[in-house]
Amino acid sequence: MRYLTARKRAEGRGAAHHGAEHHWAMTVSSVGLAFLLPVWLYIFGSTLGAPREVVLDTFARPFPAIVTALILVVGMRHFAMGATTMLEDYSKGTTRKVLVIAAGALATVIAATGLFALARIAL
């Protein structure tokens, strides 16, 4: 008699070794980003190329600062998880582990740098 159910035997055997939680996290962050992105593109696009005083004034205001912080946190996590999916498709073994860690590190460094800059401008 087999004590493991069919589901238990199948779980974790896919290419990524885990299941739907990754897909659901991408779905949730994509909905958030769908609302944030058009607003942030307008804020960032209008400010890009402006003199430094205008840039500092813009990102010192609550709304542009908060939208930018949200884009960084939600967007960089969405990027790290999406890049992980790509790397899981095209690489394996130690290379995969190194690349997945590197993609996560890159996303985290970018988010942290952006948040630091925002804090320095807004506070």
């Binding site: 990102f59 890159l106 800059a117």
Partner: peptide, 20 residues
Amino acid sequence: GNGVIVAVALAVWWLLAAAT
């Protein structure tokens, strides 16, 4: 999706420079 990271890195660098 993966390519836009280049522009995000450039944008964040520009923001850091503005803050500095």
